[in-house]
Amino acid sequence: MSPDEVVDALTGVTVEEPSCVMTYRVKGAPPSASRCAFRDLGLRVFYDREARLEGVTVDALRGPLVFAEGVGLTGRVPSEVERWLVERHATRFPDDEDELGYLGAGIPGSWSLGLVVNVQRMGDRLVTRPVVFAEHVLDDAHHILPREAWEIY
């Protein structure tokens, strides 16, 4: 999806205009990527230099509820969602070593879902904050999406 397609898809859900920032690897060169925040919706959307959607992060405290296969992924106890991902891997993809992976601090992800279940603080607790990414980002999502997609805040 392009930035305009994302805005069109959210028409009727919000009247908020996204706050967008272009990033540049080299001063004076064309933008290397952009990111847009829909603060009222609790969404951050990331695009590559061709304005292709690369990923979406969901704020656990004010973002939309995200479900995969009927399982809630937003604002949950991290161990519950991890347990579901591990069971899903064992029953649906037992021979696929790449289906279930972990980033840095034990953040679980499912490559068939294009999903990493990051965490976010809620007072003194951590709750789940989904990061969803496009198929063309699967091979290296942790490095392709900007650092702010993976922050724990």
Rank of each mutant, 00 (worst) to 15 (best):
M1I: 14
S2E: 07
P3Q: 06
D4A: 15
V7P: 03
A9Q: 07
G12N: 01
V13F: 09
E17K: 15
E17S: 15
P18I: 02
V26G: 09
K27P: 13
K27A: 15
G28E: 12
P31E: 07
A33D: 08
A33I: 05
F38C: 02
F38V: 02
F38L: 04
G42F: 06
Y47N: 04
D48A: 01
R49L: 08
E50H: 14
L53P: 04
T57F: 03
A60E: 00
R62N: 12
G63W: 02
G63T: 01
L65W: 10
V66Q: 00
F67P: 05
A68S: 12
G72E: 09
W84F: 10
R88C: 07
R88K: 12
H89Q: 10
A90P: 06
T91Y: 08
R92K: 13
R92V: 12
R92G: 08
F93W: 08
F93D: 00
P94E: 00
D96P: 03
D96Y: 04
E99L: 00
L100N: 00
Y102I: 00
Y102Q: 00
S110G: 06
S110V: 03
V116L: 11
N118F: 04
R121K: 14
D124P: 09
D124E: 13
V127G: 01
V127I: 08
T128A: 03
P130W: 02
V132S: 08
A134F: 01
E135Q: 12
H136K: 07
L138T: 14
D139A: 15
D139L: 12
A141K: 03
I144W: 11
R147P: 09
E148C: 11
